[in-house]
Amino acid sequence: MKVGTPEKFIVKGKRLDGRAPDEIRPIKIEAGVLKRADGSARVEWGGNIAVAACYGPREVHPRHMAKPDKAVLRINYNMAPFSVSDRKRPGTDRRSMEISKVTSEALEPVVFTHLYPNTAIDVFVEILNAAAGTRCTGITAASVAIADAGIPMKDLVPACAAGKVGGEIVVDLCDIEDNFGEADLPMAIIPRTGDISLLQMDGNFTPSEFKKAFEMAKTGCEQVYKVQMDALRNKYGKME
């Protein structure tokens, strides 16, 4: 057992931060927070803070990445050096490259990329504070930023994780649960179809635990989806 592991993760039905096992952390989303980007969003979720900026469709650089039949969708995930306990060295590392890739793939299915051949749609996700669940916060933000840029989409993509801590299945892991828990399952869904566009897992689940965690993450996604929709309604709902 790792040093610092709490003796119990759940006491009298409450988790270390006072939540119920199936309760997500408070989430706040605002669309259109940046002036220069074509579309943007800020998501505050638990202790996580992510800002996403979307450009495009625009010219592709480097040119050889261009696709003749559709736009390339590129999500770039980046952590600020001060967003974590031990200062993160600025720049791309293997972890952020992987997250950028799976995030792009999570959003690709909902964006009408075939309408814009030979162009790029770029989204830059900045993690300003990290508190477990930054990739889900990032996907949630990126999806609202693309919508805010006016790019046609089939749906928004919410993301949420579930995991196992002290043998119990819980949704939306907090810092300690993420560090010392037994499993983590981040997931992104396309609510209108119920399809899953991102699924990762590390740790240990029995088949029944996995099923429970999957359902919990899905319910979490649906809750996040409502907040995403409200963010767009808040910005555009009042427009004539």
């Binding site: 940046l34 980007a37 996403a52 900026a53 996700v125």
Partner: peptide, 15 residues
């Protein structure tokens, strides 16, 4: 002291 001009801050900034 370090600065980063993140690409999200302007269409003219590159990673």
């Amino acid at each position: 002291t370090n600065a980063e001009l993140r690409p999200g801050a302007s269409p003219t900034f590159e990673a």
